[in-house]
Amino acid sequence: MEYVIKTDRLTKRFGDFTATNEITFEVEKAEIFGFLGANGAGKTTAMRMLCGLSIPSSGTATVAGFDVYKQTEEIKRNIGYMSQRFSLYEDLTVQENIRFFGGIYGLSNREIKTKGEDLLEQLGLKNEAKKLVASLPLGWKQKLSFSVAVLHQPKIVFLDEPTGGVDPVTRRQFWDLIYEASAKGITVFVTTHYMDEAEYCNRISIMVDGKIEALDTPANLKSQFKASSMDQVFYQLARGAKRSD
């Protein structure tokens, strides 16, 4: 089995506060991995370490085969990242955003042109290419933002609450994009507050107070916790959480 992410007792301490406490897990290639947890459970800290933005206090981890201590630049080149808060430049047009992000991920101008056109075609945004991103509806922005994050075909894409506030139809269209990316071999690492979306993941982990308290397929977790929905699983685990952000 090819692991795209592999961590072993990965820990991050801030002073005497342990934000992420000895988390150990693997994510397989092309897997859709749901990374859940209550506010303040340590998800963001863990994700930052995996993206090479923060050096761990102890433990080991490799992302796309690169070490999170020493090879952060290589990691950044092999991942895509998208969050609800930061996605695209609102004051640039759709095309300018594609060109810019393609450029910073090291695509050649020709690649940007052909891939950008494919992307616009696929999203049905051809007529909007010259429009400012600010003028697009939120759902379109999110879809565009995701497509831009995987434009350079990274080994893995990190999605931080990508569908927050999006309408239910667009939310599903967004997940179609995620499935497609996964079918192309891109590993998807996603956080969400929508528990129904947890069901769409191949496997999920649930963090409580800095530790991974549960990690399995949604079906196995439900039977393990004798719950009928992921919502209940989450509630059982997170209700006992002592800390929050």
């Binding site: 947890g37 528990m195 509630y235 997170a238």
Partner: peptide, 10 residues
């Protein structure tokens, strides 16, 4: 409840 985890929402 936007951006709040499911437990706090409940």
């Amino acid at each position: 409840t936007t951006g709040v985890d499911p437990v706090s929402r409940k």
